Computed example of a mutant assay.
Amino acid sequence: MTLLMLDLDNTLVDRDAAFRDAVAAFLAEHRLPDTDLTWVTTVDAGGYAARRDVAAAMTGRYGDSVPARAIHSLLDHGAADRVVLTDSSREAVKRARAGGLTCVIVTNGRTGQQEAKIRRTGLDRLVQGWVISEGVGHKKPAPEIFHAAAHAVGASLTGAWVVGDSPHADVAGANALGLRSVWVSNGRPWPQVTYRPTHVAGDVATAIDRVIEAIVP
């Protein structure tokens, strides 16, 4: 069976939208300027900034006006408590399974936070497995995490596909292993000139359908 490795944040789920909602609620609760929404999300860098650096920046900005535990709660649970799986994404994963694909989530991040998202959205009942960078000790685009994903579901990387929104973590990681990929653009232009994905799709449902079309006679 063909292995389909799916990114989580901003691919299967809109992590950035969930985090923005959490930050807006945080600012309102602590009577902070709502204009700080842009500042916090910029510091967060789409989840790629280290948690400790984001916490330090927020602590430095808000000082004693916001308890440290409130900042840590936002960073630990804010997005995880609000992510949703759209119907189109859910049905696309089901189509992939029905089409003979073995689906495994491959995500960077902390185990507790990422598993909370997977279980909250019901993805744990849709995919055959998942691997999280903190748990395996390697982050995408390192080849080890993709090998760990294949091992987790007893599959081979031969003929495997990678679907994700990050040119570096997902597409470059796939290219380094000679795997095919679909980049989820979310409306963005492809930014690289030295390498490209196999396909580009505007959203994850379309991306999954590209893979299904490629493997089903």
Rank of each mutant, 00 (worst) to 15 (best):
M1A: 05
M1Q: 00
M1C: 02
M5A: 08
D7I: 04
L8Q: 01
L8P: 08
D9G: 04
N10C: 07
N10V: 00
T11D: 00
L12A: 05
D14V: 00
R15A: 00
R15H: 10
D16A: 09
D21Q: 13
V23E: 04
V23Q: 10
A24I: 06
A25V: 07
F26K: 08
F26A: 06
L27K: 04
P33R: 00
T35I: 00
L37P: 07
T38V: 14
V40S: 12
V43M: 12
D44V: 05
D44P: 01
A45D: 15
G46R: 13
G46S: 10
A49M: 15
V54I: 13
A55Q: 13
A57K: 04
M58L: 15
G60W: 15
R61L: 14
D64G: 15
P67H: 09
A68G: 15
I71E: 14
L75T: 01
L75K: 09
H77N: 14
H77D: 15
A79Y: 05
V83T: 08
V83F: 10
V83Q: 11
V84Y: 08
L85T: 07
L85W: 08
T86I: 08
D87P: 08
K94R: 15
A96H: 03
A98H: 13
A98G: 11
A98R: 14
G99H: 02
G100D: 07
L101T: 01
T102I: 12
V104A: 13
I105R: 05
T107M: 06
N108I: 10
N108Q: 08
N108T: 08
G109S: 09
G109C: 06
G109F: 09
T111Y: 06
Q114K: 09
Q114A: 05
E115S: 09
A116G: 04
A116R: 15
I118F: 05
R119E: 12
R120W: 05
V127L: 01
Q128T: 01
Q128C: 04
G129D: 05
W130E: 01
V131I: 10
S133G: 09
S133P: 13
E144A: 13
F146S: 11
A148W: 03
A148G: 07
A149K: 06
H151M: 02
A152C: 06
V153Y: 02
S156A: 03
L157R: 02
A160K: 01
V162I: 11
S166D: 11
S166R: 14
P167R: 09
A169Y: 00
D170M: 07
V171A: 10
N175M: 09
G178A: 03
L179F: 05
R180K: 13
S181C: 02
S181T: 02
V182Y: 04
V182K: 11
V184S: 11
S185R: 15
N186R: 15
R188M: 10
R188H: 14
P189Q: 06
W190N: 15
P191S: 11
P191L: 10
Q192M: 14
T194N: 12
Y195G: 12
H199G: 03
H199K: 14
H199T: 09
V200C: 14
V200N: 12
A201G: 09
A205Y: 11
T206P: 01
T206N: 12
A207R: 12
I208P: 03
R210I: 02
A214I: 00
I215C: 06
I215L: 02
